[in-house]
Write a protein that binds this DNA or RNA. Structure first.
Lengths: 190, 190, 190, 190
DNA sequence: GATGAATGAGGCTTCATTCAT
DNA sequence: TATGAATGAAGCCTCATTCAT
């Protein structure tokens, strides 16, 4: 088995484990079991330490997430449309890759990698672009980025806890909210 | 030293420790050291187990938080005002009791006590009241409650990570956002 | 409260505790609770150490046991009769003072006091007396003493485990057995 | 070193330790020291918990015991002969495997495995068979089984305490006693 | 004498990591 | 590479005992 394949397999098992048991209960033994490995030693062999594995898990989930979201963004030509697409994509990702999403939320606080702020920077840039284009009203883009991501995170966290949450409803309400929050003038429906 | 005082001291040390090192790195030994205790046995003597201490930490922070927020809510007579006061109070609490807030966010996922959803229920009720009174537009109150609390949590989380965050700016922007999100008709400024 | 009364109270609580929870689960805290004491310190104050308490428990149960058995022995004028009375007394003691008996069996292995062999010596002496008087056949009295006490202990142990054991049946069968084991010639019934 | 070998080694060390120090003083540290292990963690590595080790110790001793006793039972064709063989085997086992016997008596009260009563059931069955075959007199077989096993246990316990006990003498006397206790009619010697 | 908090040793267990094979 | 036993640190918890009040 190739090095890369092994790492991927281990990372995959780690994601499953974290999603299922939560970060605290995720030990090398659990991961090894789920990966069908006969020894935790193999994990240490392929990863310098637990931290590297955790970071890799985070990166892998983020990669999948980015791929998924990307597919939604391409189709819109306005900034507001892109923002809507981003939000929709996030909620759809939750449905399509529940365990990845759950793992993401569990693992995030334990990630060492700097670059967690990249999300924020990109969002702030997008918002600024919308302001330049005249679609968005005046607001502090960095602050609004915090808000938008907070909404995303909060909904995902809630969905992670409550499997019965109506994500369609959430999506509609969220789009309405964000539009009201950002639009230059409020558009009365119809 | 009286039992109650000791418990309070230990809870205090635990809060400090969690705020400083994060939940994962918070061991009885760390807490004992910070509290000036001679052994971890003393913690077990005063608390039935780690879970009881964790729950107590959560309860204590929540108590302080509730007291603090209460002081802000009394003065408003409209529901919208109460909602604003709630948000303001939360951000001010972060400033006044930073370590408590950080500890709260760290500890929340590990609390056993049921009643974590109470926050959500109360917020949803408040929002419904605003709808009945005509102050708020039509929206799904439960979903909007998720949004409002997500915003609150997201801002606090951000503030916990980034000590330099401008909370005044956040406050202003947040109030604006929430008003736009909930108001029956958008009020153009001025 | 007088010193002696306190000690007696603690010993009594210890007996209850051991009978109820078994030796391994008997801690000072359990004993203190059962005695209505508010501190385990009081136990350490009245007893030099756990060993002294254990020994005292053993001695106390033995004292009661001896008193009880004594009442049965007086009435017989033959050695065989005394032996029978001893056995009957033991089984009756089990019924009358179940928890004391159970405590006795639990505590015996942990007693430091030498004098556990006294039982054996007395039994051997009794048996020798029966041999001298011509009631008993020839056998090694020390070995037979082991047997008789083993039978006694085994029945008590069984009764301790199985509350439904028919002690009347046991008594009849035991007397028959011991008579056959010791009698000079087997007496056909009737 | 193979898993099975390590487990066997640990069980062996545990048997030694229990035989030497008694159950109460048998800690993982003691066992590890005696087994030449570098840490108690290794014991937990090979056994799920203390209970599993205790049960394994019990099972191992019982296995050896059963093997040993088996060799004695085959040769007899009468039930009385089988009963005698059983008793002889038990006493010989004590001599041949002293520490195992002592460990057995120490560990028995702490074993979780159900099947401790199997001994009793088998003995009662054997006795009933002897009654059906006409070798044994009328008695309650369950009660007599208690007696026979009590005698066995009592002698072993005594032998465990007193290394100087004359087991040959015990054997002869025990056989005589049991024969008198069970035989249809007392056979006068010679 | 009595209280109850404090002590500190010791117990079992989990875990990431190392290492010989 | 892979295995899986071994390591050793660290964690939580229990307990008898001590001590100031």
């Amino acid at each position: 088995m190739t090095e890369q394949a092994r790492r991927a397999q281990i990372v995959g098992a780690a994601i499953e484990t974290v999603a299922e048991l939560g970060y605290a209960a995720t030990s090398f033994k659990q991961i090894a079991t789920r990966a069908g490995l006969s020894s935790t030693g193999l994990i240490s062999y392929h990863f310098k330490g637990k931290q590297e594995l955790v970071d890799e898990v985070y990166a892998e989930v983020l990669r999948r997430y980015a791929d998924f979201v990307m597919g939604f963004l391409d189709r819109s030509d306005t900034v507001a449309g892109e923002l809507r697409a981003f939000l929709v994509a996030n909620l759809r990702f939750m449905r399509a890759h529940r365990s990845h999403t759950v793992a993401l939320m569990q693992v995030r606080p334990h990630v060492s990698v700097r670059g967690r702020d990249e999300d924020h920077r990109r969002m702030a840039d997008l918002l600024r672009e919308g302001q330049r284009s005249g679609e968005f009203r005046e607001f502090d883009a960095d602050t609004m980025a915090i808000f938008v991501l907070a909404l995303r995170n909060g909904v995902l966290a809630r969905a992670a806890e409550d499997e019965a949450l109506d994500l369609d409803l959430c999506e509609r309400e969220l789009l309405t909210l964000v539009e009201r929050a950002t639009a230059r003038a409020h558009q009365p429906p119809g």
